[in-house]
């Protein structure tokens, strides 16, 4: 397990303590919840993948995300300063306290759904980390620097699969279209800042999402073109709420499973 070398937050965060520190805590928690929930979803494929080689590939992505999750929760715990651990944060908060965007909690569905969900996330995740590794907040920059290499590979994986499914067989195209129609509406939430994110962006601790957009759009356009898929029309009823704790029905079940042991046997070490 790699720990960020230095878990001391940026001077900016301390200077504005406690407000900024609290905001930074919420942001880091949001990133941690996001990679945990998506890593958990991907881990559900383990043993059930379409072919052995891809079973291994998806488990690798899930393991990367879990590693990132742990670093983020550890840092969040430092920012909070209440003595909570990574496991307290993951296992003992209710769904309403989870801050992940809706996209990542959506069920795996078929392989096309998993690929589209992954692609939309990876395209955001990679570009976010790329900018975040220059954050003046050293721990966050450190985590981003390590994770961005993993995210680059994930984006390659999901981009290539999206292309294969789009430009594959009639069946794969039909499944891909369905997945895009289902999941595209969740993409906007990723880069729509919450009040917390906006405040941190103003301080320069978190990158401006507007500045990420051109690279993200360019990559998406390239991949969709290769896949011979027309760019889905941006859903006017784009779904959001997860980052504010308003989730879909799916997260409750996911957490019921994820938190089962800690809830059934409180306070024990495993």
């Amino acid at each position: 397990m790699d720990h960020p070398a230095d878990l001391q937050p940026a001077p900016a965060a301390i200077a504005h303590a406690p407000t900024v520190r609290q905001q930074l805590f919420e942001f880091v928690l949001q990133l941690a919840d996001t990679s945990l929930v998506l890593g958990h979803r991907l881990s559900e494929w383990c043993g059930h993948g379409p072919v052995l080689e891809q079973d291994l590939a998806m488990a690798n992505i899930a393991l990367d995300l879990l590693g990132e999750t742990r670093s983020l929760y550890q840092y969040a715990a430092v920012l909070e300063g209440q003595g909570r651990t990574e496991d307290d944060l993951a296992y003992l908060r209710p769904a309403t306290a989870y801050r992940n965007p809706l996209l990542v909690e959506q069920p795996n569905g078929d392989f096309a759904h998993t690929v589209v969900r992954q692609f939309l996330f990876d395209n955001y995740h990679y570009h976010l980390l790329l900018a975040l590794k220059d954050s003046p907040d050293a721990p966050l920059a450190g985590i981003a620097e390590k994770s961005v290499k993993e995210a680059a590979y994930h984006l390659k994986w999901s981009s290539e699969w999206l292309i294969r499914l789009g430009d594959g067989t009639a069946e794969s195209r039909q499944r891909l279209d369905k997945a895009l129609a289902t999941l595209w509406r969740y993409a906007a939430e990723l880069t729509t800042p919450t009040a917390t994110e906006a405040a941190l962006q103003d301080l320069g601790l978190v990158p401006d999402y507007g500045a990420l957009a051109p690279a993200m759009q360019a990559h998406a356009a390239h991949v969709l073109a290769e896949a011979t898929v027309p760019t889905p029309q941006f859903a006017p009823f784009a779904q959001r709420g997860g980052k504010g704790g308003q989730h879909s029905e799916h997260l409750g079940y996911l957490l019921a499973e994820l938190q089962y042991m800690q809830r059934a046997y409180p306070g024990l070490t495993w």
Binding site: P50, Q54, F111, E171, S172
Partner: peptide, 9 residues
């Protein structure tokens, strides 16, 4: 359920 994925690739 994986067969269509292999065929597509």
């Amino acid at each position: 359920e994986g067969a269509w994925v292999l065929e597509a690739a």
